[in-house]
Design a protein around this nucleic acid. Structure first.
Lengths: 189, 189
DNA sequence: AAACAAAACTAACAATTGTTAGTTTCATAC
DNA sequence: GTATGAAACTAACAATTGTTAGTTTTGTTT
């Protein structure tokens, strides 16, 4: 394991605080106290509070974007693609559950270019997802329920994984993936 | 339609602002500007910023609690109960989509008794939900996937409805209920 | 027109905010 | 042991925060 730089330590501590109270409610003094130093000392390592938020969110959004691009390019069928999307969300959630809270709840506090960049990535992601579902319906690979409802219900479950996963003790990632696929794709009734 | 009291107008305006930026990022001056008055004037109608948040969240949480209590007491089967829960979420979402943003994202900024009261209601709600699913599995009314995953995926979809519903133009509530039941209970693949 | 209540206003407060400037501490390399 | 760079510190700033006190406006009722 590569030792964390001081900057990475600060960003990880910030991720946890942002998850608990939200970006706006966390002060630089809160963050400093969590690190065991004074607020001014943070600025030896980071440029601004905003930079911390942007780092957390943009890095994660790019992981999703890159993962989705790979899946879109692949020549698998619809079910396989959906399974890969579920995998992607589980992998990202396992690697940084804290940061996902900021991505989901504090993206609107990004400034300027980063806000636009994020919104573009999110929109593209949803459109790729929707296209996969659409194609699956037209090929009769999945049931022809209202497409928007399929997209919404699946995506909202995957996006909320970060809230739920940490509460499940020692659930194996592979088992989680398998059961997730079952519930989301095969229904419960 | 009963005319809104000034206090209700303020709370509705606050719900919209809280949805857009979160409780902590909305200042009393922001809220006043949205109302077309000065910040100090708000205090002729409300006691504090905190009172606004508590009113929004507690009222909604009680709607869910009361609805769930009715469903639990009923002698319908598991599928019917789940359908009624979906109905409940859709009804509450239609009646106050803005306020649901605060309930979902800003509940941790409630103070003291209200925070405890809210957390108790949320916990009871989830336990009632889980018990219904458990009973459904043991009676073989629904598939025996991992119960926690069923609870989580269904609940996260229903809880996120408030984000998605306003973007769907003129979708009929009855159609929404029907399709929602199909997707959540019968699966998509 | 006088009285009254509702609802707005101005002015200010004490506390907290993100951030900067300049200085000191401390471990490591020479 | 002295030089160096990383990382902490103290002290302060200008702006913004929720809120209060006291006053004026507005519209309705007598």
């Amino acid at each position: 394991m590569r030792p964390e730089s001081r900057k990475e330590e600060i960003i990880n501590a910030a991720s946890i605080l942002f998850k608990e109270k939200g970006y706006s409610a966390v002060t630089m003094r809160d963050l400093a106290k969590a690190m065991g130093i004074k607020a001014a000392s943070l600025y030896n390592h980071i440029q601004s509070k905003q930079e911390i938020l942007a780092t957390i969110i943009i890095d994660l959004a790019e992981k999703f974007t890159n993962g989705m691009d790979r899946i879109v390019k692949s020549d698998e069928n619809t079910i396989q693609k959906l399974e890969n999307i579920i995998d992607l969300h589980i992998d990202v959630t396992l690697s940084n559950a804290d940061g996902l809270a900021s991505l989901n709840n504090d993206w609107m506090h990004l400034e300027e270019e980063n806000l636009q960049y994020f919104e573009k990535m999110r929109q593209d992601y949803e459109e790729n997802f929707r296209d996969i579902v659409k194609r699956g319906v037209s090929r009769k690979e999945i049931n022809s329920f209202n497409i928007e409802i399929i997209v919404f219900s699946t995506l909202s479950t995957l996006r909320t994984l970060y809230l739920w996963y940490p509460k499940q003790r020692n659930i194996d990632a592979e088992i989680l993936k398998h059961d997730m696929v079952s519930v989301l794709l095969k229904g419960i009734a």
